[in-house]
Design a protein around this nucleic acid. Sequence first.
DNA 1: CATGAATGAGGTTTCATTCAT
DNA 2: CATGAATGAAACCTCATTCAT
Lengths: 200, 200, 200, 200
Amino acid sequence: MAPRRVDAEARRTEILAAAVRTFARKGYAATRIEDVAAEAGIGKGSVYLYFDSRESLLHSAFQAMTTASQGVLDAAREGAGTPLERLAGLIRDVLGMIASDPDLSVVLLDFWAAGRLGDAPQPIDMAQLYVDYRAVIVALLREAATEGTVREDVGEQEAMVLVGAIEGCMLQWVMDPRISLPGLAEPIVAVCIDGLRKEK
Amino acid sequence: MAPRRVDAEARRTEILAAAVRTFARKGYAATRIEDVAAEAGIGKGSVYLYFDSRESLLHSAFQAMTTASQGVLDAAREGAGTPLERLAGLIRDVLGMIASDPDLSVVLLDFWAAGRLGDAPQPIDMAQLYVDYRAVIVALLREAATEGTVREDVGEQEAMVLVGAIEGCMLQWVMDPRISLPGLAEPIVAVCIDGLRKEK
Amino acid sequence: MAPRRVDAEARRTEILAAAVRTFARKGYAATRIEDVAAEAGIGKGSVYLYFDSRESLLHSAFQAMTTASQGVLDAAREGAGTPLERLAGLIRDVLGMIASDPDLSVVLLDFWAAGRLGDAPQPIDMAQLYVDYRAVIVALLREAATEGTVREDVGEQEAMVLVGAIEGCMLQWVMDPRISLPGLAEPIVAVCIDGLRKEK
Amino acid sequence: MAPRRVDAEARRTEILAAAVRTFARKGYAATRIEDVAAEAGIGKGSVYLYFDSRESLLHSAFQAMTTASQGVLDAAREGAGTPLERLAGLIRDVLGMIASDPDLSVVLLDFWAAGRLGDAPQPIDMAQLYVDYRAVIVALLREAATEGTVREDVGEQEAMVLVGAIEGCMLQWVMDPRISLPGLAEPIVAVCIDGLRKEK
DNA sequence: CATGAATGAGGTTTCATTCAT
DNA sequence: CATGAATGAAACCTCATTCAT
């Protein structure tokens, strides 16, 4: 019984990867289950052996991205170095993670579009992901403020700007893949942490 | 005849506004032509007297947003004041424009998701919009560099960070409307232009 | 607005009639929505303008049969004549009704088979129909008992036998249409009311 | 080898019993091969080692019922006693047989619904079963007529009424299991053989 | 023999679009 | 101009059946 649990898990992962590739290429709305099956090299019905529905494919992809993001956030929470160094590290890690799986990142566009429909039992809750991001960043900024390396009044709004810069850069990269995403890490650090203005 | 023309134009605008409201509420993918017609208080077939297809409604909404954006960009190009003042003004204007028509901004999620499908005769070219934004910002930054108010090496990447911060803040606001969007203008200016670090 | 309410009602009736014909010919299980549409001479999608689902077609057919049956039962309740005459009239009326719309009667086979699945919001409740039949027949039998024309102890069980004879004869007729259904009315009356045994 | 044969036969019987239970519970239309396999405690594919198809399960169940019925009919043909006693015995035997395997009887609903589709190589021929029933009953009635215990003119139609009463009572019991089916044997005998009317 | 993963035909239902009124 | 009934292409999902293990 259950001859190869590993295989079933692996197959599920293969299908999900095929789904992400297809979503990235055609967009979630235009992707048919049959497209995913063809991309995975299996029959249409087989997709349903591993996923309940087309929507659950999207949701599983979202879960994968959430898990990866949490890993990055954990690293930032537990990392070593000064707060601002860890913040810069977080920025680099996030962009690196995104660049390491471009397809999944492109599907972010569909997460955003689909996320607002709260009908699903487990909706795609991008808002929560941003809450988590901001919480980590706010903590780092407060720590830096305590150490006197940033302004005293930094808080939630500054975290929004930082998260925004990251997400907004990724967005521009998705729209125009000629942009080098990891190459944007330093400019983000330089602009948002070190400041645009000339050193006095 | 002339008044007719006005009426037709007005009717078209009404329908488009109804479409944007509906897209904002249910998302483009879940919006049926009949939903738009009901929101506009007209019959389903009448929508087709003013728009070619469901997709053209989305495209027209995109055009409206593009037009508004160009207005803001033109103002920044032609505005008075120092370059950094004009850049700060641009940031405030963009967020103000977005906040002034929240529904249209929510539909941005659908522009992003639909934009990548280049099949349409008139694709939704968000990438170009960001190119335009960056061009204006780069020009302002270069001007400021010439004046010596910012680092000499500012360029395209810094513009991406600024555009990213704006778009990324808007994104967070769309996902969580409790955020005050105009209230984010100053933090963006403070972080990205004035810098996070404590004044020495 | 609502140019022809009558037409819509008529169209619905036509489609239902087409559905009943198709169910009678192929059985409910083997009938596809497209079969019904073809029988009605319309497009597949048009069926859904008038009925929510395939199942609702069956349910509506059931309603039609129920309504017809209630008419016959009302006639028996309010009829004139001795109780046994009215009972005989009921038997004749039921068989006449059935024979007048053979298709609908054939669909009874599907009502029976589908009726037990109580998932539907308005299940096909044949059991209730038989309860109603038996109630009328018991009332007539009790009346006859009071008058002394039948045994004192007649009751629910004798009503079951009578209902059974009617339904069972109809069943045999459905399975073998060469049988004359109205021609069975007198034998039922003769056997169940007048008795099989030779007059002493 | 010989014991193998027995095992195979027994396994087939088990599966069929599981199928009948499942058909009775969910109806044939809603029963999946997997449901039957689960009920039998075996794998889905194993069902196909013993039965050709889903439909053949239904057909085999029908065969089982037919065989049981033929046994009852044979008993009536060869039984001892007066014709009317043997007829009464037949009625009791049929109801007893039905009550002894309620699940199989419930599946009658599906035999009826499926029986009319003559596409199958071995159709479910309920009509023939009723022909057989009537033949036996007609023979008994004619014999009774010869002996002078029933009217001279009894024939096919009276047999239909008797078969109808039996089948119709069973139908009501299937629809409403609170009814005691064996308890209906005496009322059927009393009404259809002894007569409803008061003894003079 | 036994299994259950894989398949794809087939059916239901939706909805963008058309067009007669 | 305005309408909404009609259409049928298209997509989801199910499940009977097969077959490699």
